[in-house]
Nucleic acid binder design. Structure first.
Length: 106
DNA sequence: AACCTGACTTCGG
DNA sequence: TCCGAAGCCAGGT
């Protein structure tokens, strides 16, 4: 794997403040590879626990949690709720309201 | 090496 | 707005 990309993703993830969310594609973009959204997902899946990452703050471009019901969806939704990130009846999170917009990169 | 899979995105109908 | 297909890239078999 691309170690440099991996490390940059970790640094960026750790900057996402509580109560805000980011998208996979957004993280990939900031880390220097706009097309690596799936790799960001893979990194979260494999390293979120040992790296102590705020994995719950990463959702897809549509504003939905990508985990499937019964496979972490409810848990992620609960963690976000505890931070003040609400979702509507369909499970959609308002990105206009909660999306993390860093002033400057790195 | 070939093929499958996935916590993704984008584009076209 | 709502799918489905295609593009994407890395890991696992």
């Amino acid at each position: 794997m691309n170690t440099e990309f991996y490390l940059r993703v970790l640094k960026i993830l750790k900057r996402i403040p509580p109560g805000r969310v980011a998208t996979y594609g957004q993280i990939a973009l900031y880390a220097g590879n706009p097309r690596a959204a799936r790799q960001v997902a893979w990194i979260l899946h494999s390293s979120s626990e040992k790296e102590n990452l705020p994995w719950q703050r990463v959702i897809n471009q549509q504003g939905f949690i990508s985990l499937r019901p019964g496979a972490g969806f409810e848990y992620q939704q609960a963690l976000l709720l505890a931070e003040g990130v609400l979702s509507d009846h369909s499970g959609k999170i308002d990105l206009h309201r909660y999306l993390w917009k860093p002033k400057k990169l790195l």
